[in-house]
Protein backbone atom coordinates (compact mmCIF):
# COMPACT_ATOMS: atom_id res chain seq x y z
CA UNK A 1 0.00 0.00 0.00
CA UNK A 2 1.29 3.44 -0.76
CA UNK A 3 -0.34 5.58 1.84
CA UNK A 4 2.40 8.08 1.11
CA UNK A 5 0.84 11.21 -0.35
CA UNK A 6 4.06 12.40 -1.99
CA UNK A 7 4.66 9.07 -3.76
CA UNK A 8 1.06 9.07 -4.89
CA UNK A 9 1.29 12.56 -6.39
CA UNK A 10 4.57 11.72 -8.14
CA UNK A 11 3.16 8.53 -9.63
CA UNK A 12 -0.04 10.28 -10.67
CA UNK A 13 2.04 12.88 -12.54
CA UNK A 14 4.13 10.23 -14.27
CA UNK A 15 1.04 8.23 -15.28
CA UNK A 16 -0.47 11.39 -16.77
CA UNK A 17 2.76 12.06 -18.63
CA UNK A 18 2.83 8.53 -20.05
CA UNK A 19 -0.76 8.94 -21.19
CA UNK A 20 0.12 12.16 -22.99
CA UNK A 21 3.18 10.60 -24.61
CA UNK A 22 1.22 7.60 -25.85
CA UNK A 23 -1.53 9.89 -27.16
CA UNK A 24 1.09 11.89 -29.08
CA UNK A 25 2.44 8.68 -30.54
CA UNK A 26 -1.06 7.72 -31.63
CA UNK A 27 -1.16 4.55 -29.53
CA UNK A 28 -4.06 5.49 -27.26
CA UNK A 29 -6.74 8.10 -26.89
CA UNK A 30 -8.25 9.39 -23.67
CA UNK A 31 -11.64 8.05 -24.78
CA UNK A 32 -10.31 4.55 -25.38
CA UNK A 33 -8.76 4.55 -21.96
CA UNK A 34 -12.03 5.69 -20.38
CA UNK A 35 -13.85 2.93 -22.24
CA UNK A 36 -11.34 0.33 -21.07
CA UNK A 37 -11.77 1.41 -17.44
CA UNK A 38 -15.58 1.50 -17.73
CA UNK A 39 -15.62 -1.97 -19.32
CA UNK A 40 -13.33 -3.31 -16.61
CA UNK A 41 -15.69 -2.10 -13.89
CA UNK A 42 -18.96 -2.90 -15.68
CA UNK A 43 -18.15 -6.55 -16.39
CA UNK A 44 -16.81 -7.23 -12.91
CA UNK A 45 -18.90 -7.41 -9.78
CA UNK A 46 -19.24 -9.75 -6.80
CA UNK A 47 -22.98 -9.69 -7.54
CA UNK A 48 -22.20 -11.90 -10.57
CA UNK A 49 -20.62 -14.61 -8.43
CA UNK A 50 -23.43 -14.36 -5.88
CA UNK A 51 -26.03 -14.92 -8.61
CA UNK A 52 -24.17 -18.00 -9.85
CA UNK A 53 -24.03 -19.43 -6.32
CA UNK A 54 -27.74 -18.80 -5.68
CA UNK A 55 -28.60 -20.58 -8.92
CA UNK A 56 -26.42 -23.54 -7.94
CA UNK A 57 -28.12 -23.75 -4.54
CA UNK A 58 -31.59 -23.85 -6.08
CA UNK A 59 -30.97 -25.92 -9.21
CA UNK A 60 -29.15 -29.24 -8.81
CA UNK A 61 -28.66 -29.74 -12.54
CA UNK A 62 -27.07 -26.28 -12.80
CA UNK A 63 -24.88 -27.02 -9.80
CA UNK A 64 -23.62 -30.19 -11.50
CA UNK A 65 -22.84 -28.27 -14.70
CA UNK A 66 -21.09 -25.54 -12.71
CA UNK A 67 -18.81 -28.00 -10.97
CA UNK A 68 -18.11 -29.93 -14.18
CA UNK A 69 -17.37 -26.91 -16.40
CA UNK A 70 -17.42 -23.59 -14.55
CA UNK A 71 -16.73 -21.49 -17.63
CA UNK A 72 -19.62 -22.86 -19.67
CA UNK A 73 -22.01 -22.73 -16.70
CA UNK A 74 -21.35 -19.06 -15.89
CA UNK A 75 -21.55 -18.19 -19.57
CA UNK A 76 -25.11 -19.58 -19.49
CA UNK A 77 -25.84 -16.69 -17.13
CA UNK A 78 -24.03 -14.17 -19.33
CA UNK A 79 -20.72 -13.95 -17.44
CA UNK A 80 -17.15 -14.31 -18.74
CA UNK A 81 -18.26 -14.04 -22.36
CA UNK A 82 -15.29 -13.71 -24.67
CA UNK A 83 -12.86 -14.29 -21.83
CA UNK A 84 -9.62 -16.10 -22.56
CA UNK A 85 -9.69 -17.44 -19.02
CA UNK A 86 -11.26 -20.60 -17.66
CA UNK A 87 -13.18 -20.88 -14.42
CA UNK A 88 -13.12 -23.80 -11.99
CA UNK A 89 -15.68 -23.77 -9.20
CA UNK A 90 -14.74 -25.72 -6.08
CA UNK A 91 -17.44 -26.83 -3.68
CA UNK A 92 -17.32 -26.59 0.10
CA UNK A 93 -18.86 -29.54 1.91
CA UNK A 94 -19.14 -30.76 5.47
CA UNK A 95 -15.68 -32.30 5.16
CA UNK A 96 -13.85 -30.02 2.68
CA UNK A 97 -13.18 -26.29 2.87
CA UNK A 98 -11.64 -24.57 -0.15
CA UNK A 99 -9.71 -21.30 -0.18
CA UNK A 100 -8.20 -19.41 -3.10
CA UNK A 101 -4.92 -17.58 -3.55
CA UNK A 102 -2.42 -16.62 -6.23
CA UNK A 103 1.04 -16.89 -4.67
CA UNK A 104 2.95 -15.70 -7.76
CA UNK A 105 0.87 -12.62 -8.54
CA UNK A 106 -2.78 -11.83 -7.94
CA UNK A 107 -4.90 -13.93 -10.32
CA UNK A 108 -8.53 -13.77 -9.32
CA UNK A 109 -11.95 -14.40 -10.93
CA UNK A 110 -12.42 -10.70 -11.59
CA UNK A 111 -15.49 -11.07 -13.79
CA UNK A 112 -17.37 -12.89 -11.04
CA UNK A 113 -15.98 -11.27 -7.92
CA UNK A 114 -15.11 -7.74 -9.04
CA UNK A 115 -11.74 -6.14 -8.33
CA UNK A 116 -9.97 -8.02 -5.55
CA UNK A 117 -9.58 -6.73 -1.99
CA UNK A 118 -6.15 -5.36 -1.02
CA UNK A 119 -5.49 -8.23 1.37
CA UNK A 120 -5.82 -10.75 -1.47
CA UNK A 121 -2.91 -9.01 -3.24
CA UNK A 122 -0.79 -8.67 -0.10
CA UNK A 123 2.44 -10.59 0.43
CA UNK A 124 1.17 -11.55 3.90
CA UNK A 125 -1.83 -13.45 2.50
CA UNK A 126 -0.04 -14.87 -0.54
CA UNK A 127 2.91 -16.16 1.48
CA UNK A 128 1.01 -17.62 4.40
CA UNK A 129 -2.20 -19.20 3.16
CA UNK A 130 -0.42 -22.05 1.34
CA UNK A 131 1.74 -22.73 4.41
CA UNK A 132 -0.69 -22.29 7.31
CA UNK A 133 -4.24 -21.88 6.00
CA UNK A 134 -5.92 -22.72 9.30
CA UNK A 135 -4.07 -19.92 11.07
CA UNK A 136 -4.84 -17.49 8.23
CA UNK A 137 -8.53 -18.41 8.27
CA UNK A 138 -8.62 -17.84 12.02
CA UNK A 139 -7.40 -14.29 11.38
CA UNK A 140 -10.48 -13.86 9.19
CA UNK A 141 -12.61 -15.17 12.06
CA UNK A 142 -13.10 -18.64 10.61
CA UNK A 143 -12.09 -21.55 12.82
CA UNK A 144 -12.46 -24.94 11.16
CA UNK A 145 -12.60 -28.26 13.00
CA UNK A 146 -9.60 -30.55 12.48
CA UNK A 147 -11.89 -33.02 10.73
CA UNK A 148 -12.32 -30.59 7.80
CA UNK A 149 -9.77 -30.96 5.00
CA UNK A 150 -8.54 -27.52 3.94
CA UNK A 151 -7.69 -27.29 0.23
CA UNK A 152 -5.80 -24.23 -0.98
CA UNK A 153 -6.12 -23.50 -4.71
CA UNK A 154 -3.14 -21.56 -6.04
CA UNK A 155 -4.51 -19.87 -9.17
CA UNK A 156 -3.01 -19.32 -12.58
CA UNK A 157 -3.74 -16.61 -15.13
CA UNK A 158 -5.39 -19.21 -17.33
CA UNK A 159 -7.70 -20.87 -14.79
CA UNK A 160 -9.41 -18.81 -12.12
CA UNK A 161 -11.06 -20.43 -9.12
CA UNK A 162 -14.21 -19.57 -7.23
CA UNK A 163 -15.57 -21.24 -4.10
CA UNK A 164 -19.14 -22.54 -4.00
CA UNK A 165 -19.97 -21.97 -0.33
CA UNK A 166 -22.34 -24.19 1.63
CA UNK A 167 -25.89 -22.95 1.66
CA UNK A 168 -26.71 -21.46 5.07
CA UNK A 169 -29.21 -23.32 7.22
CA UNK A 170 -32.82 -22.18 7.52
CA UNK A 171 -32.89 -20.58 4.07
CA UNK A 172 -35.42 -22.98 2.52
CA UNK A 173 -38.03 -20.25 2.14
CA UNK A 174 -35.76 -17.82 0.30
CA UNK A 175 -35.87 -17.26 -3.44
CA UNK A 176 -32.82 -16.94 -5.70
CA UNK A 177 -32.52 -13.20 -5.33
CA UNK A 178 -32.73 -13.36 -1.54
CA UNK A 179 -30.17 -16.14 -1.46
CA UNK A 180 -27.79 -14.15 -3.69
CA UNK A 181 -28.00 -11.27 -1.21
CA UNK A 182 -26.56 -13.54 1.50
CA UNK A 183 -23.39 -14.33 -0.46
CA UNK A 184 -20.28 -12.33 0.47
CA UNK A 185 -17.09 -11.78 -1.49
CA UNK A 186 -14.98 -13.45 1.19
CA UNK A 187 -17.21 -16.53 1.09
CA UNK A 188 -16.48 -16.84 -2.64
CA UNK A 189 -12.74 -16.65 -1.93
CA UNK A 190 -13.06 -19.05 0.99
CA UNK A 191 -12.00 -16.78 3.83
CA UNK A 192 -15.47 -16.58 5.41
CA UNK A 193 -18.36 -18.96 6.02
CA UNK A 194 -21.95 -18.03 5.28
Amino acid sequence: MSGDHHTDATTARRVRRLETLLEEKGLITGERLDEAIDAFLAESSPANGARVVARAWTDDAYRARLLADGTAAVQELGHMEGSYQRLRVVENTESVHNVIVCTLCSCYPLRLLGPSPSWYKSEAYRSRVVREPRAVLREFGLTLPDSVDVVVWDSSAETRYMVLPRRPQATEGLDEEELAALVTRNALIGTAPL
Partner: peptide, 25 residues
Protein backbone atom coordinates in the same frame (compact mmCIF):
# COMPACT_ATOMS: atom_id res chain seq x y z
CA UNK B 1 -2.91 -9.96 7.29
CA UNK B 2 -4.83 -6.70 7.25
CA UNK B 3 -8.22 -8.26 6.61
CA UNK B 4 -10.01 -4.94 6.08
CA UNK B 5 -12.69 -5.53 3.47
CA UNK B 6 -11.98 -2.57 1.16
CA UNK B 7 -14.64 -2.44 -1.50
CA UNK B 8 -13.37 0.48 -3.60
CA UNK B 9 -11.69 -0.96 -6.69
CA UNK B 10 -9.16 1.90 -6.81
CA UNK B 11 -7.62 4.08 -4.14
CA UNK B 12 -6.66 6.88 -6.53
CA UNK B 13 -7.61 7.92 -10.07
CA UNK B 14 -4.18 7.12 -11.43
CA UNK B 15 -4.65 3.46 -10.46
CA UNK B 16 -7.68 3.25 -12.75
CA UNK B 17 -5.70 4.95 -15.55
CA UNK B 18 -2.93 2.35 -15.13
CA UNK B 19 -5.45 -0.49 -15.46
CA UNK B 20 -6.87 1.24 -18.55
CA UNK B 21 -3.38 1.58 -20.02
CA UNK B 22 -2.62 -2.07 -19.32
CA UNK B 23 -5.83 -3.32 -20.93
CA UNK B 24 -5.52 -1.04 -23.95
CA UNK B 25 -1.84 -1.73 -24.66
Amino acid sequence: IDTTDDTEPFHADWEARVVGLYNTL
